[in-house]
Amino acid sequence: MALTASKKSEITLGSVLFNWPAERWRDFYFRIADEAPVSTVYVGEVVCSKRAPLFAPFMPEVVDRLKAGGKTVVLSTLSEVASDKDRQLIESVCAATDHLVEANDASALYALKGRPHHVGPFLNVYNEGTAAFLVRGGARNFCLPPEMPATAIRNLSTQIRHPDITVEVFAFGRVPLALSARCYHARAHGRTKDSCQFVCEDDADGFALNTLEGQPFLAVNGIQTLSYEYLSLAAEVADLRAMGVSRFRLSPHSCDMVAVTSIFRRLADGALSGGEATAMLRASIAERLCNGFYHGKPGFACVSTD
């Protein structure tokens, strides 16, 4: 049976995963606030609690500017929680009761239970049982794990169809693949997490790891490992809409993100075809595109949907 898409498509902007200098971080959000056709912007440190104090002074003005631009601001929380510093960061973000918060770890779920919140892509929500359990605790939006194939997305989205619950997919950017206790940025430079001197600031999109054959393979961002390729689900947006997925998350990179958000907005409005949008993204991104996970193939694969 063909499903009629009932919710308006929304383009959302994920938290900046990389360590951008604080002024650049601020200016990026200012421009998004003024120019990008996105409905929701996630803000906050997701990868490393050591970075949070660097841009904290700019947080209030960024939030104000985004709101003035008509955006809903959701505060995103840390994906891996080990140290007391990590725990304090989670606690302080979840204490902001005037904002929606996105949980990326069960620590945040503990703080948010009973109050409306979002569930981020770093929490393992693979099935209807987990989603139903979290909805009882206040979850209102699920950004699904990027490795979920279309079959599972369809099954999940169909089973939790509810006017107040939205399903979001990670639709653009390097794919988050793994987290670790160890900082691989520091390691590459012969340092450790405690003595890192914020060397991750030098790589706005992470740095590439190449195989012994020189083939680009992965990208490193502190404790996080991502795909070398950039995910694009532009060609899959129409199918996802039909499944009941209404929100498409774009992950910030150093490329022109206002242009990227515009491409996805026009695609969702029917002003561009999936093929046209993909071609435009390909023209503006130096790295290869990938979409393998969605098609049940290795994540690095680029499956043509023509």
């Binding site: 994906s79 891996e80 770093f122 393992n124 693979y126 794990p145 990027p146 490795e147 599972a152 794919v175 693949l177 793994a178 987290l179 670790s180 206790a181 992965l218 490992t225 795909s227 393998g292 996970f293 049940g296 193939k297 290795p298 994540g299 690095f300 694969a301």
Partner: peptide, 19 residues
């Protein structure tokens, strides 16, 4: 990698550690 939060193997092979 942090357990239960790694899709590196799936990225290269199409089979997921988690699923």
């Amino acid at each position: 990698m942090a357990e239960g939060r790694c899709s590196l193997s799936n990225f290269a092979t199409g089979q997921s550690t988690n699923m």
